[in-house]
Amino acid sequence: MSVWSSLRAAAGAAGRAAGAGVGAAAAGGSRAKFSVSAIALSGAPGNSFRITPSRWQWHKFKDMLHYYVVVGAIPATLIILYSNIFIGPAELTPIPENYTPKYWEYERHPITRFIYRYIMHSAQQDYEKYLHYLYEENEKALLRQLEAQIKLKMGERGDYQAYYYRPVTAKYIRAFKESHEETVNRIGDD
């Protein structure tokens, strides 16, 4: 049994028990009893208050769509139309002597020229940035090789605990090793 059918049954029972309902009040009854269910269910049968989901999100989406079309798409369309109608594509002409064209002057469309001139980097600048990246990576590789060689020598000689930690000066350790080797050579291993 749905909520509305139970409300209708309750409103009908309340109207019969009271002897007067909405219609009695309209007919001029002195004392009419109104209930929320009787008011909500008054009218033709089948006409009742329908609960529907909110359409607020849909209306908000439409508002935002219209806003961004007005703010973004319309000005962009006007700029594109202006540049195509009044400026037009570039035409090839001979390059004058003693003049080096800029990198954006090689583009045909005016909007593309604008983007290359004010937003993007030139191909030469991108190439030089890439070369600098390769140089930095090469320097890092050389430093890693040097570090590996240092650790190898430290392991062979055993004169340092680590290349970044030096508890004593190494010259005394080397001098002690040399004197120990001389002593072993003079006296022997016994």
Rank of each mutant, 00 (worst) to 15 (best):
R8S: 07
Y127T: 04
Y118L: 08
Y163T: 05
N98V: 02
I80H: 13
Y172S: 12
K177H: 15
G23C: 06
G15M: 10
R16N: 08
Y118N: 04
P167A: 10
K171E: 14
L78R: 07
L41W: 02
I39G: 00
S30C: 01
G15Y: 04
T93Q: 12
G23N: 12
Y116D: 13
P101G: 05
G29C: 05
I173P: 01
A17G: 07
T93Y: 02
Q149R: 09
H109C: 00
W56R: 12
E128Y: 11
A44S: 13
G29N: 09
T112S: 15
G72Q: 09
R16F: 14
P45V: 09
G46Y: 00
A40D: 09
G21E: 10
G188D: 02
R50W: 03
A141K: 08
Y116Q: 15
V22Q: 06
F61Q: 14
P96Y: 06
R144F: 01
V70E: 03
A73E: 03
Y133E: 01
Y164A: 04
G15I: 14
R117A: 07
Y68K: 01
G29H: 11
A18N: 14
Q161P: 04
R174Q: 14
Y165N: 15
K153W: 14
L134H: 07
G19I: 01
V22I: 15
W58M: 04
K177C: 06
G72W: 03
E107P: 01
T93D: 01
G21A: 10
F61R: 10
P45A: 15
K177E: 11
A11N: 07
A170F: 13
Y165R: 09
P96H: 09
E128C: 07
E136R: 02
E137S: 01
